[in-house]
Nucleic acid binder design. Sequence first.
DNA 1: CTCAAGATGTGAATATTTTAACAAGAGGTG
DNA 2: CACCTCTTGTTAAAATATTCACATCTTGAG
Lengths: 223, 223
Amino acid sequence: MKTEEEIKIPNATAKRIPLYYRYLKTLQESGVERIKSKEFSQLIQVPSATIRRDFSHFGELGRSGYGYDVSYLIEVFSNILNTKVEKRIALVGAGNLGKALLNNNFRRNENLNIVCAFDANPEMIGQKINGVTVRPMSDMKELVRKEGITTAISTVPSSHSQEVVDQIVDSGITAILNFAPGRVKVPEQVKIQYIDLTTELQTLIYMDENFTSRKHFNFSNQD
Amino acid sequence: MKTEEEIKIPNATAKRIPLYYRYLKTLQESGVERIKSKEFSQLIQVPSATIRRDFSHFGELGRSGYGYDVSYLIEVFSNILNTKVEKRIALVGAGNLGKALLNNNFRRNENLNIVCAFDANPEMIGQKINGVTVRPMSDMKELVRKEGITTAISTVPSSHSQEVVDQIVDSGITAILNFAPGRVKVPEQVKIQYIDLTTELQTLIYMDENFTSRKHFNFSNQD
DNA sequence: CTCAAGATGTGAATATTTTAACAAGAGGTG
DNA sequence: CACCTCTTGTTAAAATATTCACATCTTGAG
Ligand SMILES: NC(=O)c1ccc[n+]([C@@H]2O[C@H](COP(=O)([O-])OP(=O)(O)OC[C@H]3O[C@@H](n4cnc5c(N)ncnc54)[C@H](O)[C@@H]3O)[C@@H](O)[C@H]2O)c1
Ligand SMILES: NC(=O)c1ccc[n+]([C@@H]2O[C@H](COP(=O)([O-])OP(=O)(O)OC[C@H]3O[C@@H](n4cnc5c(N)ncnc54)[C@H](O)[C@@H]3O)[C@@H](O)[C@H]2O)c1
């Protein structure tokens, strides 16, 4: 295995790691001890060549004529995703979507935890949702530090997105998942990822309409 | 402009169209009548070369030394996304997330409408959420036909995902947005798109940890 | 131990996507 | 009208990503 310093993980690979990890855990729970790239391929609907290529970036994880050891793979991907360290997350905007996220709280992922919630609406403050108390925005900076929070999820309306992201950044957080689709400005070192449900839906419908029934446009591949 | 039959829209381009469309509408609302690819680039954080290349797939939409006419672009993208036709959507699984989606109901997109909701839990049946009544699963097939529904959003637990998707497919729907991350089997002609919040969060955190602070891994580009 | 079957890891080919760079054309000014 | 400025659309190059296909290795059976 190459030294970590020289590894360049392709972006496309990085995005698939959590999927691999999730399914490996499922397999382990079902008592499966080894898996071949072809079998895994069928399960997760990713071509086996892509799986093998992806895995190969992290070393020689399998054995010819045998496949991969499920628990070893889990060990490897667990290290890559650093799942042994609890990720303490703040949620900002305890509205409809925020409450749904709080109630779910990444149940199946023991190391992902929403530990704080913030809102600007005085009526929300003090409410307890699935064990998490909603606090005023003014408490954020201090709590982020005190609670060791590293990540934020923003579910505020688009109109307040930039303002809220500014506050999140100011609190020292460097990773933000934003459900408001409007692009906001963040400093270089801050990673922001958008979850844009409307766009996903529109793209889906567009592809359905144009790829399947009315053959006006064609697409080169799927996602 | 090439005839529609010979156009091949790259997948990467297709996924950006809704973003373009959304921002163009916003610009128009702000009274902006023309836009240059460089200005647009700053706004949506997509390189101007990518924007121009994307646009070029749909013809010569702009004018040298001038830029693009906002209302003309809106016209073009509106046709591409077929926004003049109402998309009637069914939501299956009126739980926490389903309710959030119902309450929001793609407010800003006049042509996207969740018109029906279904759930298996008898206690949910009959509840009205933001004007939409929750119905039993047994009503789905008939209502999908009667209401002219073409798209479904599934927000049921992973454990029932395949079962519910089967029912959705059986009702004649060919486009499914699935919030349960487990990969399900669907017939060839059915398009399914997953919204996998845990994966998005894990990828974000992974990139934040490895790209920014601890330089163990590097990534080739961003998303 | 030998061998057939079968799977990995990877070079090489292919496909897709992004980016650079600029010729050609349009706009606006004097 | 002549000219300078600016921006598009596109050609070509570079960067990424996927896929093929097979040499090589391992297993497990006999
Ligand atoms: N709910 C959905 O189905 C859905 C679908 C697509 C996109 N979205 C996006 O997700 C975001 C949240 O949606 P929602 O339905 O939960 O909205 P919501 O109105 O129910 O909740 C928003 C919450 O943010 C709080 N808030 C407002 N301004 C704030 C500020 N400056 N600081 C802190 N908190 C503030 C409000 O008090 C409220 O509790 C929106 O950007 C929306 O566009 C939601
Ligand atoms: N809520 C979140 O923040 C969140 C985050 C990540 C992923 N998800 C995923 O989204 C999905 C929904 O999450 P949720 O929090 O809304 O769950 P939930 O339990 O609140 O709601 C699920 C709903 O589905 C209904 N249902 C169950 N089985 C059904 C069946 N066979 N047919 C029809 N309806 C059925 C239930 O009655 C319930 O109303 C889950 O797959 C979950 O993994 C949710």
